[in-house]
Nucleic acid binder design. Structure first.
Lengths: 334, 334
DNA sequence: CTGAAAGCGCTTACAG
DNA sequence: CTGAAAGCGCTTACAG
């Protein structure tokens, strides 16, 4: 382990070896043209003095910071923590570090303030769990920085997105409830204007329609927009017996509230979530849930970003087309 | 929203305003001595051209990157995701961005390889969920970079740590089990050499000892080191009726396995975890758990780091002394 | 109150 | 194959 005194720079290595700063840099970056002898001298000196490159200086000159910005909104939901974990580790393996940017509870969209702090770091790429605000789309494109929306459809923005087939997922949830004999179905979403949320709802509605049922507008709730107690009250009063929730966290919240009202999931009604966070947390399989295959999902996201970073324009088949969501049954449906 | 063409630098603002680069910089950094008139001209030009500072260049010259490195091991466990989320948002508020470094499944300790990549980013501070390997302690201290170990005791390393009173937590778990009439107690830890894990075990052992019982060595397991099936088998065969687990995730895993063996938590045996992840995820309260007060915990961690960053040496009272863990009862104990 | 110069630590052309 | 010079975009002394 080398001794760390003051900061050691290329100049120190150059002096130590009697070479020029330039040559030392070339060796360390494995640029062509240097002798084995020089290489060994440089490596020895670096080890002895404990040289560590300054990526800030390197990035300033070369134009590449070897950095990816990750824009997120909620790390607590295990779906995000799990996928972020996989994605960031893949980036690290490839020599990229991740700089994290949260919307800090401002808005669910990428706004100019957020983009400013992102751009100030000059990342080589941006992977976002957030969708851009309307007026940010052009701005982001003009920046020229490779940009990937993860977990959302990029098409509406003309951007690259890696997403799952959410409508199919909603359909699976609906078909499951119907096949288990549930009859009065409700949907509990998050926000009415989140596309993923709407796609799941759309899939559910389609499944119901195909079975001669209707997803009644009065039984579509957005938990972040409506009064929670009112919603629970309405679900109980209207005799809802099947609920599809936008994700597992919401499904837990809802089933907890219904339990307080004396209704037990799986017995008195059925509830289905999304994401299969139980598997991520190695929890008992309480909830029935729709699993998009999160590991492959995250890896697809990382791969698309890494592809862009290495200049590849080769279009790999969309995750949505190659991976279909599937149902994982728990005790929350009969 | 300013148009983004090519990258706009201070030089562009200087040309636009007819001022020197120097003066522009001074205005943007709010250094003393400039007229209101100059200030307005600069701000107008920046807005018009869409100027965004280059923090890499700024950091290189000034020596401060306004960056904090966060070293983590596991983001999926909600305890980490939750505290990381709070901590990173606090840093962002104060103008620091977070660069994430995982051990990438190498070792549970900070090793030289990890520190190399951290130092290459020249962070102003390092907040670590990982403990340093033995031979890294001096290296880290010599680096002169403010360093905070979060969730672990720093004392053994002579470093600054923000941690909870884990022994007290273990005691609380043990006392709860005893008070509910459980008699044959086991402990399921993670690794035998993780201090937090041992402290919880120690507290549990102390609670048992004070009640004339013993935590038998054969009923102390480390789930990452032993065969899982063997452990479950032994727990069943020896008629263990009370289990304290190192954390909630482990408690879920164990109770799932016991359920497969026909044993129901709360009825046939009691199990207690740590961290109260159920509250973070807004899940039903299945597990009885010891809660360290994670929000205040995370904030204390952020505050200690921010204190160091602003050069404050003022010793605030340790989180461990001001906040005691408490029990949150769930259905997993009677 | 403002500006010209130097320099942070690298990498990139360009010579030799 | 190696080196001297320039420059990435800032901020920091130092003059005026």
């Amino acid at each position: 382990m080398p001794e760390t005194k003051k900061k050691v720079t290329l100049k120190d290595i150059a002096e130590k070896t009697g070479l020029s700063v330039n040559t030392v840099s070339r060796v360390l970056n494995k640029k062509p043209y240097y002798t084995k002898e020089v290489e060994e001298k440089v490596n020895a000196a670096c080890k002895e003095l404990g040289y560590i490159v300054d990526m800030n200086a390197s990035g300033l000159r070369s134009g590449s910071t070897r950095t990816v910005a990750i824009l997120y909104d909620d790390l607590v939901n295990p779906f995000y923590a799990y996928t972020t974990d996989i994605i960031s580790k893949r980036f690290e393996e490839k020599g990229y570090n991740c700089i994290m940017f949260s919307n800090n509870d401002r808005s669910p969209y990428i706004d100019y303030e957020l983009m400013r702090s992102v751009m100030a770091r000059k990342p080589d790429g941006i992977l976002s769990f957030l969708e851009p605000a309307e007026d940010m789309v052009e701005f982001i494109k003009n920046s020229g920085i490779p940009f990937v929306i993860f977990g959302r459809d990029g098409a509406p923005y003309g951007m690259i997105g890696v997403d799952a087939d959410e409508e199919c997922g909603g359909r699976i949830a609906g078909e499951h409830l119907l096949s288990r004999g549930y009859r009065k179905i409700a949907y509990v979403g998050s926000w009415h204007d989140v596309k993923v949320c709407l796609d799941r709802q759309k899939g559910l509605a389609a499944a119901l329609a195909e079975n001669g049922k209707e997803l009644s507008p009065e039984h579509i709730f957005y938990i972040r927009e409506c009064d929670f107690a009112d919603m629970i009250e309405k679900i109980v009063r209207d005799g809802i017996d099947g609920i599809v929730c936008y994700n597992d966290v919401i499904a837990f919240v809802v089933s907890e509230a219904l339990e307080e009202r004396g209704l037990e999931a799986g017995l008195d009604y059925g509830v289905v979530g999304f994401d299969n966070i139980q598997q991520m947390l190695k929890m008992p399989r309480f909830l029935t849930t729709v699993d998009a295959g999160s590991q492959a999902f995250a890896e697809a996201g990382a791969n698309v970003m890494l592809g862009l970073l290495s200049g590849g324009e080769e279009q790999m088949p969309a995750f949505r087309d190659t991976h279909k969501p599937f149902l994982v049954k728990g005790r929350s449906t009969r």
